[in-house]
């Protein structure tokens, strides 16, 4: 079951205008910073927020004129919104009951789903006594219980602690793989998006800024937000052949391009020197240290100069270099790790 939508929501000082597509069985992650309009888009799809324009089609049939209860779109809300007065089982059975199933039949469906998410033993527990991870599973089971044509997940892992998140993420991936409808996943976490989605749609300020597979996006970010998200340095410049000029810095790259182009490279591709290195590597310039912080096993150095820059160095190198804010250093970027692509 596929979904195609053009969502327009106009508010004072905000306009959402995005097109979304998801094929049957496909998981699309809607990625963007806070306030970009991700949740508004999701609510528009579900029918909880009225559209100012556009349309929503499921398998080619328009549904945007239908109220939420007639769209058969399952939603897992950010804080789950499990009905506090119903047991886990009755929460999951709620949808099937509304679809006309008898009490016993609805409970059978619900029990089966609870079993699938590994909570068969918690059927009688009220939501108030469930852990965050358990509540997330019940919420997923509840959304799936209506056999939705489209599944919407709003920050499904945001409310979980780091360890639970790891477990639930893996589980969720498995459940989504089993689901034959389309799935839209809203998140601001790049890792969740990369692990769970087949395709990413990045929105900023109510508009789509980039779409692509996780690996495309990770390699070729097109906005500062995406670059930060995937942990790359990103610059926009002018290409002529094997070089891209960004301000005063001239990058060599493997790709041959002309015209406006992006240059991207990971912080680990940057080497820092106290004095100008011998052998003159290309892509070399002088920069000033703004600050340093731990980043995994390495030290991340924030620098400014002709262009802002992030560099990752080993703790040993950091000690040798005596990195302190305000110190001037030489920065060099390995050309082999520099990607250039048309802007």
């Amino acid at each position: 079951m596929s979904m195609e939508a053009h969502l327009v929501v106009e508010r004072p000082a905000f306009r959402l205008d995005v097109e979304l597509r998801a094929a049957a069985g496909e998981v699309v992650a809607l990625l963007g910073p806070n306030g970009a309009g991700k949740t508004t888009a999701l609510r528009g799809l579900a029918g909880l927020t009225a559209l100012s324009g556009g349309r929503v089609e499921l398998d080619g049939a328009e549904v945007h004129h239908l109220p939420p209860e007639r769209r058969r779109i399952g939603v897992v809300f950010q804080d789950y919104l499990l009905f506090p007065h119903l047991s886990a089982l009755d929460n999951v059975a709620f949808g099937p009951r509304c679809q006309g199933l008898g009490k016993a039949a609805a409970r059978r469906v619900a029990a089966e789903l609870l079993d699938r998410v590994g909570l068969a033993g918690h059927a009688d527990v009220r939501p108030g006594r469930l852990s965050g991870g358990q509540a997330q599973r019940v919420a997923l089971a509840r959304a799936l219980a209506v056999r939705p044509r489209l599944l919407l997940l709003d920050e499904p892992l945001a409310a979980l602690d780091a360890h639970t998140r790891l477990v639930i993420r893996a589980e969720l991936r498995r459940h989504l793989a089993d689901f034959d409808g389309a799935t839209i996943l809203v998140t601001h976490d790049a890792l969740d998006a990369m692990v769970l989605a087949h395709r990413l749609v990045v929105i900023e300020n109510g508009a789509v800024v980039q779409t692509g597979t996780p690996s495309e996006i990770a390699r070729h970010p097109r906005t500062d937000y995406v670059a930060r998200l995937v942990g790359l340095n990103l610059y926009r410049g002018e290409a002529d052949g094997n070089h891209v000029v960004v301000g005063d810095v001239r990058f060599s790259s493997a790709e041959r391009l002309t015209g406006p182009a992006f240059v991207a490279f990971p912080p680990s591709a940057v080497a820092l020197y106290r004095t100008r290195p011998d052998g003159s590597p290309r892509n070399l310039w002088q920069a000033v240290i703004d600050g340093i912080e731990r980043h995994g096993d390495n030290v991340r150095v924030h620098l400014h100069g002709p262009i802002p820059l992030l560099a990752d160095v080993t703790p040993a190198a950091a000690a040798d270099l005596d990195l302190t804010p305000g110190r001037q250093v030489w920065a060099a970027v390995k050309a082999t790790e520099t990607h250039a692509y048309p802007a």
């Binding site: 579900a46 029918g47 909880l48 109220p67 939420p68 209860e69 007639r70 769209r71 058969r72 779109i73 399952g74 939603v75 809300f77 919104l81 009905f83 506090p84 007065h85 119903l86 709620f94 949808g95 509304c98 679809q99 509840r142 959304a143 219980a145 209506v146």
Partner: peptide
């Protein structure tokens, strides 16, 4: 919570009866 119930297929009356009222 009422919105959540609506996405599960509950009519406004069902929402009132089974979600709003108990809450």
């Amino acid at each position: 919570y009422e919105e959540a119930a609506a996405t599960l297929g509950a009519s406004r009356w069902t929402v009132f009866r089974r979600v709003t009222l108990p809450m």
